[in-house]
């Protein structure tokens, strides 16, 4: 079989130590695979690989021991079940997401939906100074560590005590639920929320049995410039409570600014350190909001 070099340019495979073997990187959005996709991965690994796969920390699947002449056939089989190879190199990588509000009891936002939207708009975008990673999570527990990504989004909710939707029965569950002592109960057992101590994890909102504590705002906290690797640095929070329908445009603006302002080889963090976070944000055309945490 002849090897189509143009086809190989699309990437998605990595050279292994062994001279004849390549690792095929399969893109898995938000860590979710359907049963038929799992079956196909199992088949492919037996037919073309070593009979096993590796799960990457970015929720991807890697198929080891594939010969380069089989790569095209593997891609074709992946396509049969709506899978494709994952981006490598200086591109926008697969979007990482936790279970979020559709599965996890702590979730405040729908991470799966947001991952799909972000994926549609920015996944695979190339011609960047370096790689660009986006990670999202559904609440401040940060299971998928959005702070380690070039761009991170975290679901948050700000509580308010408001008895329009439900009367307070002085149960104290809200104060019990808060891990930061942001809620104190008065002599009648009614809550007072100190927002300066609140990290917006929504625990009190979930806890209140009557709806007397509800979310005043739900949205996304935005982190820029996170990375791990040889020089770990956490992303810098720049915005709070960004609504669902503004997230994708915001990501686009930051990605564009990174593309335009970054020098070859710079991660977003390097650009931000060179320019200063305020200047970067200004250039990107997004507004910085002081975090109240």
């Amino acid at each position: 079989m002849t090897i189509d070099v143009n086809f190989l340019k699309q990437g998605g495979f990595i050279k292994q130590r062994h001279p004849d073997y390549f690792l095929v990187r399969v893109r898995v959005l938000a860590g979710d695979l359907k049963a038929n996709q799992l079956k196909k991965l199992s088949e492919i690994s037996e037919k073309y690989g070593a009979g096993w796969v590796h799960l990457s920390v970015r929720q991807g699947v890697e198929i080891p021991n594939v010969r380069i002449e089989d790569f095209q056939a593997v891609v074709k089989e992946l396509e049969e079940v709506d899978l494709s190879t994952g981006a490598c190199g200086p591109r926008a990588r697969v979007i990482l997401a936790c279970q979020g509000s559709s599965i996890c009891p702590y979730g405040l936002v729908n991470t799966k939906e947001m991952a799909k939207k972000l994926d549609k708009r920015i996944y695979g975008r190339g011609d960047l100074p370096h790689k660009f990673k986006v990670g999202i999570c559904g609440c401040p527990n940060s299971c998928t560590k959005p702070q380690e990504n070039d761009l991170g989004f975290m679901g948050t909710a700000q509580p308010v005590f408001d008895e329009v939707e439900g009367a307070c029965i002085a149960c104290g569950l809200c104060a019990e639920a808060c891990r930061f002592g942001a809620i104190t109960l008065d002599d009648e057992g009614r809550p007072h929320i100190d927002l300066s101590k609140c990290i917006s994890d929504g625990r009190c909102i979930h806890a209140c049995p009557t709806g007397a504590i509800r979310a005043a705002k739900i949205g996304w906290r935005v982190f820029v410039g996170g990375r791990f690797g040889y020089k770990p640095q956490l992303g810098i929070p720049i915005m709070e409570f960004v609504p669902d329908d503004e997230v994708v445009d915001l990501a686009e603006k930051i990605l564009l600014a990174y593309k335009n302002l970054g020098k070859k080889g710079e991660r977003l963090r390097d650009v931000i350190e060179r320019m200063g976070v305020d200047e970067f944000i200004k250039e990107a055309g997004v507004m910085k909001v002081e975090s109240d945490t």
């Binding site: 009891p105 029965i169 569950l173 019990e176 639920a177 979930h206 806890a207």
Partner: peptide, 23 residues
């Protein structure tokens, strides 16, 4: 028990659509 059991069970009871009338 106080703490996690109290917080977790009461939240789940609410999410299942039951009414907590008193604690």
């Amino acid at each position: 028990d106080k703490g996690e059991p109290f917080s977790n069970v009461s939240r789940s009871i609410k999410e299942e659509g039951h009414e907590i009338i008193k604690v």
